[in-house]
């Protein structure tokens, strides 16, 4: 462990301060956020050069087109025919989470390994879902969904209870989104650290990197997928249900 930490000043600093203590300050966190944003905009700026009318040139342009098609397919298959207009938001989520998970492979800290950053992302996601729900169903129509089916007489009490439960579950959606991302990325770091303690000669924990690579992709996918599912829950239209074949 020692020779490698001496080669990487950031790792060494993290070790001195007890595992990424330098990211607990605001400036430290913002350094990693800025790193992710720089990588993202750099890649996109390079990819943008390949966008010519007719044919796309350059490897990055092709990759970004593949990513767009993938997310477009995801949105349309989950949300339905009107899912294509949510693609920009989902692609943004994908890029931020994926790149910052990749940063987490190489650095002791990454934005997605910090709980407050994840909570911010999840709040943005849930807020966007509410906004889209209000936009497609109207303000009262959106909140009427929370109360469940229409009931008369004394059963209104059940509707009130359902409304409260749904409100709590909306908040818990944000909590579960953020905790899932944080737990997976930060948990990967913890696992590597404790495996490294086993044998001081070779950092055995680095053998976990293939598993972490899988986690990187899956977590970005899960976040985007769940956002799509939440959007599809609030923006479904009654006529589309009847037109769809029975399944």
């Amino acid at each position: 462990m020692e020779p490698i930490t001496r080669l990487m000043p950031l790792l060494a600093e993290a070790k001195v301060e007890g595992g990424g203590g330098h990211a607990e300050t605001f400036v430290g966190t913002m350094f990693y956020v800025a790193l992710v944003v720089l990588i993202m905009f750099g890649l996109l700026a390079v990819a943008r050069k390949g966008f010519r009318p007719g044919v796309f040139q350059g490897r990055l342009a092709n990759y970004s087109e593949q990513l767009y098609l993938f997310v477009n397919n995801l949105c349309v298959s989950i949300i339905g025919p009107h899912g294509a207009k949510y693609v920009p938001m989902i692609v943004t989520f994908w890029l931020i989470i994926f790149i910052s998970n990749m940063v987490a492979l190489a650095f002791p800290v990454a934005p997605t390994a910090i709980l407050s950053f994840n909570l911010g992302l999840a709040l943005i996601s849930i807020g966007y879902v509410q906004w889209e729900g209000i936009k497609s169903n109207g303000f009262f129509g959106h909140f009427k969904h929370f109360a469940g089916p229409k009931m008369g007489g004394p059963l209104v009490l059940i509707s009130v209870m359902l409304f409260c439960i749904e409100l709590v579950s909306e908040i818990m959606k944000a909590v579960s989104l953020s905790l899932r991302l944080y737990g997976n990325i930060h948990g990967g770091h913890e696992a590597v650290t404790s495996l490294n303690k086993l044998w001081n000669v070779i950092p055995v924990g680095e053998l976990l990197i293939p598993v972490k690579l899988l986690t990187v992709v899956v977590q970005a996918l899960i976040f985007c997928l769940l956002t799509c599912v939440y959007i599809s829950l609030v923006t479904h239209h009654e006529d589309e249900h009847e037109a769809a074949p029975a399944h």
Binding site: L74, S77, G187, I222, V229
Partner: peptide
């Protein structure tokens, strides 16, 4: 897709 959603919710239990 459905499998990944289900796995995400089961995994959340462990994280909690």
């Amino acid at each position: 897709t459905q499998m990944l959603i289900g796995m995400a919710f089961v995994e959340l239990v462990f994280l909690l």
